[in-house]
């Protein structure tokens, strides 16, 4: 037999139950502009933290057979302003600064002297498309050894001929599939794809794989993070 109560008492029970839901109203803070900005920044920060925690230094990105490659003619060209910033190949070199024992200018030949690694990996764009490409170059980890980089530093930052800039965490920089890429599809890198040197990082989203590199810096503190990151994109964006 049910307990019998009067209407008023029932109302106070249901009102109490309703009030218990008030914590859900905290989500309303997302509708208030100043809070919204901070909350979304914190949410993105948490996602980046989780991404870094999920990243495994020795876990390789999937590699693909030659038959699975996207034809070179269908490999999209994304840039943020120009396809060709007009790099003078004769005068080009990579300027190395920061926490390294041997700073200075490095030629393409010096980079090409390092062991060459060729890999068919997936390039994923933040927009949602992806392609499987064939990339070849020197491991960034080998180059960091060559320049005597302090690998306990937190970041490797690059700057580009088109004023684009990017940075990656040291863990990713040391990943065996992270390349200083100078060849695509067994041909020297073309200008639209970032000649003479670009980053290929199959464990990262596309916008982190900067093209037309001119400067490389090893650092613990970054003056700026990355072109898109500084406009609100994820910093880590590991795949």
């Amino acid at each position: 037999m049910n307990e019998t109560i009067d209407q008023r008492k029932f109302k106070s029970i249901t009102r109490r139950e309703l009030l218990k839901l008030t914590p859900a109203l905290a989500l309303g803070a997302f509708a208030i502009p100043p809070f919204q900005r901070r909350l979304l920044k914190a949410g993105l920060g948490f996602s980046d933290w989780a991404s870094a925690a999920l990243f495994r230094t020795h876990h390789p990105a999937p590699t693909f057979a030659d038959s699975e490659l996207t034809p070179f003619s269908k490999f999209p060209i994304n840039d943020y302003d120009v396809d060709d910033p007009g790099v003078d190949f004769e005068k080009w070199n990579l300027t190395v600064t920061g926490a390294v024992q041997k700073p200075g200018d490095y030629t393409l030949a010096q980079i090409q002297n390092l062991p060459k690694k060729t890999q068919n990996t997936r390039h994923v764009c933040v927009e949602g498309w992806d392609v499987i490409g064939r990339f070849a170059g020197a491991r960034l980890s080998d180059f960091l050894k060559l320049i005597g980089a302090d690998t306990t530093a937190r970041f490797v930052m690059v700057e580009c001929a088109d004023d684009y800039y990017e940075s990656v965490d040291m863990q990713t920089a040391l990943h065996p599939q992270t390349l200083l890429c100078y060849e695509m599809y067994d041909q020297p890198l073309t200008r639209e794809h970032g000649a003479p040197l670009r980053l290929t990082i199959p464990t990262k989203i596309g916008y982190k794989q900067a093209k037309y590199l001119t400067d490389l810096k090893v650092a613990n503190v970054l003056p700026k993070v990355g072109y898109w990151e500084d406009q609100g994109y994820s910093y880590f964006y590991g795949l």
Partner: peptide
């Protein structure tokens, strides 16, 4: 896109 990703990557945890 960047704004939408912020919302998506925040609320996916919720």
């Amino acid at each position: 896109l960047g704004g939408a990703l912020q919302w998506h990557l925040t609320f996916m945890w919720i």
